[in-house]
Computed example of a mutant assay.
Amino acid sequence: MSNAVLQPRYWLAHALEWPQGESPYRECAQALAPPIIPRQMVSRDVADILAVADAYQNEHPTRRLVFFSDLTLWLDGHGSDWGQRGTDWEGGYAYAKAFHRRHGHLAIPATAKLDDYAVGAWMRRQRKAENLTADQVAKLDVLDELWRLEPDWNRSYRRLLAYLAVGGTLDGPANRTGLGDDPTFRPGTWLRKQDKARTEGKLTDQQTALLDALTRRAETVTG
Rank of each mutant, 00 (worst) to 15 (best):
K139Q: 14
P109D: 12
D144C: 13
W147Y: 12
G172L: 12
K139I: 02
G120Y: 07
D116M: 15
H100G: 04
R124H: 07
D152Y: 06
D152N: 12
D115R: 12
R101E: 09
L149G: 04
N175K: 13
L132A: 03
R124M: 05
Y117D: 13
S156H: 13
T111P: 00
Y117A: 15
D116Y: 10
A112F: 10
G167N: 06
A174N: 03
H103A: 12
W153K: 14
L146P: 00
N131K: 11
G104C: 11
S156P: 01
L149R: 04
R127S: 02
L106Y: 08
Y163H: 12
Q126R: 15
D144R: 09
Y117L: 15
G172P: 05
L164M: 05
G167P: 09
L179K: 02
Y163D: 13
L146G: 03
K113F: 04
E130F: 07
D135F: 02
W153R: 15
S156A: 14
L164T: 01
G120S: 13
N175V: 01
T133V: 03
G172H: 12
V137N: 08
Y157S: 05
A96H: 00
L170P: 08
I108C: 08
L146I: 02
E150P: 05
T177M: 14
D144V: 09
G172C: 10
G168W: 04
Y117F: 15
K113G: 04
D115P: 02
E150G: 11
Q136T: 01
H103W: 14
V142G: 10
D135R: 13
L132D: 00
G120K: 14
D171Y: 05
H100V: 03
R102W: 00
T111D: 06
L160N: 06
Y163R: 09
M123W: 02
W153S: 13
A129W: 01
W122S: 06
R155Y: 00
V166Y: 00
D144H: 10
T177N: 14
